[in-house]
Write a protein that binds this DNA or RNA. Structure first.
Length: 491
RNA sequence: GGUCUCUUGGCCGAGUGGCUAGGCAGUGGUCUGCAAAACCAUGUACGGCGGUUCGAAUCCGCCAGAGACCUCCA
């Protein structure tokens, strides 16, 4: 059955029916990380959210070009709290590395973490430093159209001038007068016409390492510019969906809109999508609050607020159990709940794979399948979709215990459905391994011991049976007795 | 200070006018030599006050509380 994709557009503040510019094709751009430190929990949210969107679009039959950039230059620190220097340059100085070594190092860990979370790689992953020419060309056209001005080797965007023709603030819902009265005046802004003007090109100070020649100065591009330049290059002057974290709405995305309008004279993005933030025990995650958790810390349980480690799929499932536009609160209790819920779902899928079909079906999965997909197509409502998967698991379990039958044909369809939704669209994967990799000797030895235990049980030699169970448990091998025999897994 | 959002049962988290999401925990049960696991059953909650309505968690107003953005952040 066909479903119409509906997505919430930040621009209109409404859900809209998705219609691609080119039939059958979708251009998707998502703001990627600035690679100056380890990937953290906050990176999980947008990447999983838009991975879901990417997977759903492909399921719907679209050919998707998915761009997710790597910011490796131009992202400056807040001058009031930090030094105002480029984040990557600063890190390079602190770690005594080349800036590009810093970039490579943290880009590698980002990629590894994304792979662990089963986030598909994008179609193109452009880097800001690799598109200096394109950014300079965009600056030229912005200047040519009268919306940029040069001062002392730096180029700034003339927001006030732009606002006379366009609407600066329409994405984030603010107007220039408010911004005017409430923008903090930062140090070193004297050369700008207005405090809310933003940099397109910054002249590099003598000690600034990352610099490129330009007609204005040896310098570097402003942070907002890369996304505009790279999306235009690879997705064209107009494309379908632009995503990112809600915190980027202002000023970053507002500036992108301004840059594209100012240089291209047209609106480039049809749908703006923003994922909400993650809080930790009710508080915003921030380095200053001491609740800043990297993905590695989460996966290994090494952060002090974590009571245990949480697997990548637990984290992914947890994120998918909330709607992407809601804030989501991380706590040990909530994560443990997701861990168990995921296990229940995965065991349901496992049970489904081994279900024995009957001649006819006494259960009807059609409504569940329909509602589950409908939820996903309704602005990525993964929590609702998951709730229907659980409803299905309940029925699957009842069939297993003999309280229902499913025909061969229905069973095949149901297996395909779970495979599609659970693995292909939601992007989950089974992390349980009751076999220890390729260590067949271990497998054989444990199986042998457990067969001996079964014999002992049959002979009512409980002491021996318990001894085997307890001692294996001490070695980190957990045993479950089942109807037919046993199961075991490494803890 | 400005702009905006949120407040749902022990916890997490959907839902946006009537049809009591779902997960976890708890409780009861089945199974089991015991245990674990698993499975089944079970909870009529929506910040407070007022209004609109035949009917409100859902719409409107006020109050209280929390948060986000406005400044780097995903």
């Amino acid at each position: 059955m066909e479903h119409q994709l509906v997505i919430y557009n930040t621009l209109s503040r409404k859900k809209e029916i998705f219609k691609s510019l080119n039939p059958g094709k979708v251009g998707l751009y998502v703001c990627g990380p600035t690679v100056y430190s380890d990937s953290h929990l906050g990176h999980g949210r947008p990447n999983i959210t838009f991975d879901l969107l990417y997977r759903l679009l492909m399921y719907a039959g679209y050919q998707v070009r998915y761009l997710r950039n790597i910011t490796d230059v131009g992202h400056l620190e807040d001058e009031n709290e930090g030094t105002g220097e480029d984040r990557i340059s600063k890190r390079a100085r602190l770690e005594q590395l080349e800036p590009m070594e810093v970039v490579q190092k943290y880009m590698n860990t980002f990629h590894q973490n994304m792979a662990e979370l089963n986030v598909l790689p994008p179609s193109i992953e452009p880097r800001a430093s690799g598109h200096i020419i394109e950014q300079q060309q965009m600056i030229l056209s912005i200047i040519k159209n009268g919306y940029g001005y040069e001062v002392n080797g730096s180029v700034y965007f003339d927001v006030e001038k732009y606002n006379q023709k366009y609407n600066y603030g329409k994405l984030s819902g603010r107007n220039l007068d408010d911004i005017k009265t409430h923008t903090r005046v930062l140090a070193g802004q004297a050369e700008k016409k207005n405090s809310f003007d933003f940099a397109l090109w910054k002249k590099a100070s003598p000690e600034h390492i990352m610099r490129w020649p330009s007609q204005w100065s040896d310098g570097f591009p402003g942070w907002h510019l890369e996304c505009s330049a790279m999306s235009t290059k690879y997705l064209g002057e107009q494309f379908d969906i632009h995503g990112g974290g809600m915190d980027l709405t202002f000023p970053h995305h507002e500036c992108e809109i301004a840059q594209c309008n100012a240089s291209l004279g047209k609106e480039s993005v049809s749908y703006w999508m923003h994922n909400n933030m993650i809080t930790i025990n009710g508080q915003k995650m921030a380095r200053s609050l001491g609740n800043f958790i990297t993905l590695d810390e989460l996966f290994t349980g090494t952060h002090k607020i974590l009571e245990q480690s949480y697997s990548p799929m637990t984290v992914r499932f947890f994120i998918l159990q909330a709607h992407y536009r809601s804030t989501i609160d991380f706590s040990n209790e909530a994560l443990k709940a997701s861990e168990k819920g995921l296990k229940r779902l995965m065991e349901g899928v496992e049970t489904l794979a081994h279900l024995i079909p009957s001649k006819v079906s006494t259960v009807d999965f059609a409504p569940i399948k329909e509602k589950c997909l409908a939820a996903l197509f309704d602005d990525l409502n993964s929590p609702i979709a998951i709730s229907y998967l659980f409803d299905g698991v309940k029925i699957i379990n009842s069939i297993k215990s003999g309280n229902g039958r499913v025909s061969t044909e229905d069973l095949k369809e149901l297996q395909d459905f779970y495979d599609t939704v659970v693995f292909k669209i939601l992007g989950l994967k089974n992390e349980e391994s009751n076999v220890s990799g390729n260590d067949s000797i271990l497998n054989n030895v444990v199986d042998l011991l457990l067969k001996l235990r079964v014999e002992a049980k049959n002979n009512k030699e409980w002491d021996t049976a318990d001894k085997i169970r307890n001692e294996l448990l001490e070695m980190g091998i957990e045993i479950k007795d089942t109807k037919d025999g046993f199961e075991w897994k490494l803890l």
